[in-house]
């Protein structure tokens, strides 16, 4: 069926001296931001096909926890951390758990080859996917926070702080999720790590810290989602200490930068085997 003989195709006879060493010009490199935007847009569109049921699961899980805790916690600072913990749990579910699974599967199936044979910076692929997964969490987090405030009678005055909490804890958790997914040697392990991370965020974030033993509290301090929870919990007070809120968010941002850098490195490593 291939009817063009190789001899008659153009570009065969070259003038002497033209591109002397015989090197072809390379195609353009995809630049960081445009390709990040392209990956982000593509990932976001996947939500329409595959992610919506999971987003519902994430939200219902958190709302269920709120309702359950209503019977145990009456109000005060404990209620604040329950509401904040449940809201951030949505971020942990989607950004940490689902992203770890996604990258784990992509790596195992050979899907990374698609990106690895395109001239796209690794950071664009990792950041684009992480940003998209963090974005998926916005509706669920907002719904959970508002529902929690109504249920426990907390003020909604400072809920705008979610606009900082979601992206920053999203960056930290999706960075961890991506790193887990890309580093795990097998996809089941990536799923396991994602699930464990989410369970930790659930247990250590939702339950009030005052009642925890010292050792568990240390683990809690190591988990980046904790700082998102604390930042949000502080803003339920009448006069939030904004310096502490900013400090907590700065930790999230720092972990985000570090974990996304690790994830980018892990992507590079996974792409060329």
């Amino acid at each position: 069926m291939s009817v063009v003989p190789a001899e008659v195709v153009p570009g065969r006879t070259r003038g002497a001296g033209e591109t002397a060493p015989g090197r072809a010009e390379l195609g353009p490199r995809a630049r960081l931001w445009p390709s990040l935007a392209a990956v982000y847009r593509a990932q976001l569109s996947r939500a329409r096909v595959a992610r919506i049921p999971l987003l519902f699961v994430a939200t219902f899980q958190s709302i269920g926890i709120l309702v359950m805790m209503r019977g145990v916690v009456d109000g005060g600072s404990e209620a604040e951390s329950v509401v904040a913990g449940s809201a951030v749990l949505v971020v942990a579910f989607v950004a940490l758990n689902l992203l770890a699974q996604y990258f784990g599967q992509l790596r195992a199936s050979g899907g990374l080859d698609h990106y690895a044979t395109l001239p796209v910076p690794p950071a664009s692929v990792v950041l684009g996917a992480a940003a998209a997964y963090a974005s998926f969490t916005v509706p669920g987090t907002v719904v959970t926070a508002v529902f929690g405030c109504l249920l426990f009678g907390l003020p909604m005055t400072h809920l705008w702080v979610l606009a900082a909490v979601v992206p920053l804890s999203g960056a930290a958790l999706s960075g961890l999720g991506a790193a887990c997914g890309l580093l795990a040697p097998r996809p089941e392990l990536a799923t396991l790590l994602g699930q464990l991370g989410m369970s930790a965020a659930l247990l250590l974030g939702v339950l009030p810290a005052d009642r925890m033993p010292e050792a568990v509290r240390l683990v809690r301090d190591l988990l980046p989602s904790t700082y998102g929870v604390e930042a949000l919990a502080r803003t339920f007070g009448a006069h939030p200490d904004w310096a502490f809120v900013a400090g907590d968010l700065a930790v999230c941002a720092g972990v985000g930068v570090a974990s996304l850098a690790v994830a980018t490195w892990a992507y590079r490593r996974a792409a060329v085997r």
Binding site: A30, S35, A42, H114, T117
Partner: peptide, 30 residues
């Protein structure tokens, strides 16, 4: 930057529409 590769696996594109898969790939090709 020299070649286009069609691998055996389509996981990276599976949940995209045909149109977006082609467009995104083109954008990532610069």
């Amino acid at each position: 930057r020299i070649l286009a590769y069609l691998g055996q696996d389509s996981t990276a594109l599976d949940e995209l529409t045909v149109s977006l898969a082609a467009e995104t790939t083109g954008r990532l090709r610069g």
